[in-house]
Amino acid sequence: MPFIEVNHISKTYGDRAVVNDVSFDVNGGEIFGLIGPNGAGKTTTIRIMMDLIKPDSGEVLVLGRRLGEAVKDDIGYLPEERGLYLNLTVVESLTYFASLKGMEIHRAATRADELLARVDLLPHKQKKIKELSRGMGQFVQFLVTIIHEPKLIILDEPFANLDPVNTQVIKDMVFEMRNQGRAIILSTHRMNEVEELCDRILMINEGHTVLYGDLAEIKSRYRNNSVLLEFEGELGQVSGVIKRQDHDGRTELFLDSETTPQQVLAQLLGQGVTVNRFEVATPPLHDIFLQVVGEHQ
């Protein structure tokens, strides 16, 4: 059973359809990317999933149950608009929000210590939120999201304004939660993060689904039959290659529709070229994103 099923949800404000017949599901043990340009409808979709906004039509099932108060305890949500009580201490913030998610207060206190130790914030547990640096505050917000050990975690732009070190700490924790069998939905417009983290994606633009499925399969679908090559020696004429492009110390060979990468590799080896790296080129998600959004507009 999927951890979350979104079935044909739509939401209109005035004359503007912000979300239009969007459907997808996310399973346990996977990181799912919800991507799209700014204003595509990602945040509205998430708010509908969180029962913060009622859809005009469609429904959302979490662990097979309709949205409601009981379901909220199974979800951890990091909104794009971050917010904590500035006058509460770090530990008060963590335990208060954990208790609002149904976690017993002593258990929440223990878990808060564990998480704070994990991100080296334990010495700051008695500091007020307003006394923390921005990065520390971001960490605490992330910990508030996951402290109650939710089955489904929704992260809206989780790495915004984080430095590379802190970003990596959170990425590691996201992978860890995925490996524990939780479902993670990552909403972002940073394609490199999606490529690094996500197993499947949904791309929306102007409220419509434009791409949905396995990330590797999508990238394969959009590949343009080319190979990337790093070599030593002189590269002669290779039959089946219709174009050659050199960039970043690598050479990309574009093949005609009749030629396979294996045939090209055999020709290269036959020419005595020392091949240091050979891979079937797949377009970066960023390019697919631009292409798909461009087509859609």
Binding site: E69, K72, L84
Partner: peptide, 11 residues
């Protein structure tokens, strides 16, 4: 402070 969205995701 944008706490509202966090609160309403719980209650």
């Amino acid at each position: 402070n944008r706490v509202m969205e966090v609160l309403l995701s719980s209650v």
